[in-house]
């Protein structure tokens, strides 16, 4: 069993308190690189993706595509994202290409591969809350 599957299994076996009152649904995504999709109950629109990348565990939540941002306000928004990176707990803003030259803004966190299931739960729930807050706070930049 892979590291990601192990973590998923461990988290699923946790009790309500350990999971911070959240319900997680894990779904492995096939491909060259192992990716685990995590859906939090009630937040199905903002799935989180876990990927093992060399020496770290990346947790990614997609916010919105570049197309959704008002073109004339983009640099103001990215500046604000940089300013917010440090105060935002555990997560950082990022940007990634999703193919065909299309880019998405993300919030993500990087964990050590030695992280415990409890660390991953904290990471996922913080990341999800950060993503919701970020979209809300940045919605004035969206078209």
């Amino acid at each position: 069993m892979s590291q990601l599957e192990n973590i998923a299994e461990e988290i699923s076996a946790m009790d309500e308190g350990q999971r911070g009152g959240m319900d997680f649904d894990f779904q492995p995504i096939p491909g060259d690189q192992e990716v685990m999709q995590v859906i939090i109950e009630g937040r199905e629109e903002l799935p989180i993706f876990l990927a093992e990348a060399d020496s770290q565990l990346l947790c990614i939540c997609y916010l919105f595509s570049e197309d959704e941002v008002q073109a004339d306000k983009r640099s103001e928004m990215t500046d604000l994202m940089l300013d917010m990176n440090m105060p935002m707990p555990l997560s950082s803003f990022g940007k990634t290409e999703i193919g065909d030259g299309k880019h998405m803004y993300v919030v993500f966190g990087a964990l050590s591969l030695k992280s415990t299931a409890a660390d991953v739960v904290l990471e996922i729930s913080t990341l999800s809350a950060n993503a919701i807050d970020a979209i809300e706070a940045l919605s004035e930049y969206l078209a």
Binding site: I29, P30, G31, D32, Q33, V35, Q37, E45, L46, P47, F49, A51, A53, L58, I60, Y62, L63, F64, S65, D67, E68, T96, E97, I98, G99, D100, K102, M104, I135, S139, L142
Partner: peptide
């Protein structure tokens, strides 16, 4: 990982939201 996610979401993860 990006490519796996994109493939899995058909025409792309962008489909997921209108944020």
């Amino acid at each position: 990982a990006q490519s796996s996610i994109s493939k899995n979401y058909g025409s792309g993860i962008g489909k997921l939201g209108d944020a």
